[in-house]
């Protein structure tokens, strides 16, 4: 017995100094650990960090897609930023983006996704699989196909929707561009919220719901007193993600191209128009930087909420 116990301390002593240098759990040492993460860091640097810094730089120049300024961009200081925030089109786009985010993400996707998850929580079998399958299908289809489907659905003269409603000639995308892209984005993105809430609801202890039911709580009271407090973190994480995704979503361009008259020109489309259609890369970069700042504010807002009242 005594022999069996004594060796381990020696082993520890032998290993001690070698491991002492490296503070990592795997005992690789700094150099070898760095080699392992280098490829990933390189990719991140080339494709994420560098472009981001490049955009910051471009925002300070009069760089253009074509012409003299393309060959020899000049440093113009904060001119682009001032121009960006003093353009009425920018504020129009910002307001439309807020509408788009609130309407399609916060209200549309989150509420619809939660409702479907809540209704399907106790169901098994065909109905559940059919509903989930359809919702997820809208999420996984490639954008080009989805855009084509929706154009075909909403087309003024030969669209499926008008044929079904019996109102040929009704121009959805011209008369209600924001409504169209909001509904489009709800349809497109609800799957994520539905799946996230579905998983979250699985974690609400059944006994808590039953306890509330025994006390006589209505469905709404059960949601308020048991379900929402339990999945608060999931709700905020979900809202954070879908708000940011929707904020930066370029999908609306495929349906309305920002038109008519900029009435559906959300910020992502605005940047595209300024930078690539008008060719003012410097101006576009400045707008992008402002969008990045707005995203940061939104993210910090949600993260604050998440951390408060834990």
């Amino acid at each position: 017995m005594a022999q069996a116990i004594s060796p381990p301390p020696e082993v520890v002593r032998e290993d001690g100094p070698a491991r002492g240098d490296s503070t990592d759990a795997a005992g690789l040492g700094r150099v070898r650990a760095a080699v392992f993460v280098a490829p990933a860091l390189l990719l991140i640097a080339v494709f994420l960090v560098f472009p981001a810094l490049w955009v910051l730089y471009l925002g300070l120049t009069n760089y253009r897609l074509t012409g003299v300024a393309a060959a020899e961009p000049q440093f113009v200081g904060l001119d682009n930023f001032i121009a960006a925030v003093t353009t009425p089109a920018f504020w129009n786009s910002t307001w439309l983006t807020v509408e788009f985010v609130l309407g399609s993400a916060v209200i549309g996707q989150a509420v619809l996704g939660f409702t479907i998850a809540w209704l399907m929580r106790d169901r098994r079998g065909t109905l559940k699989r059919a509903v989930e399958g359809l919702v997820i299908l809208a999420w996984i289809l490639p954008s080009a196909i989805v855009a084509f489907l929706w154009v075909a659905l909403l087309d003024r003269d030969s669209g499926t929707l008008n044929a079904m409603l019996g109102i040929p000639g009704f121009a959805w995308l011209l008369d209600h561009p924001m409504l169209s892209i909001i509904i489009f984005n709800v349809w497109r993105g609800t799957a994520f919220s539905m799946m996230l809430y579905g998983a979250a609801l699985g974690n609400v202890p059944p006994s808590h719901l039953e306890s509330a039911r025994l006390a006589g709580a209505s469905s709404w009271q059960q949601l308020r007193d048991v379900v929402f407090p339990h999945i608060r973190g999931h709700i905020l994480t979900n809202l954070l993600l879908i708000s940011l995704w929707t904020f930066n979503d370029f999908g609306p361009f495929l349906l309305t191209a920002g038109g008519p008259d900029g009435r559906s020109e959300v910020l992502a489309v605005h940047v595209y128009k300024v930078a690539l259609q008008a060719g003012e890369l410097g101006h576009g970069a400045a707008v992008s930087t402002v969008i990045l700042l707005i995203n940061l504010v939104v993210a910090v807002f949600y993260l604050r909420l998440l951390r408060s009242k834990k």
Partner: peptide
């Protein structure tokens, strides 16, 4: 269940984690 006028103690107690003891008892 709510109309039967019975009260139950669950094996895991089913106390609401976000409410204090007073609110739990008074729920």
């Amino acid at each position: 269940p709510g109309a039967r006028d019975v009260a139950m103690v669950f094996q895991d107690y089913a106390l609401f984690p976000h409410m204090d003891v007073t609110d739990n008892i008074a729920y």
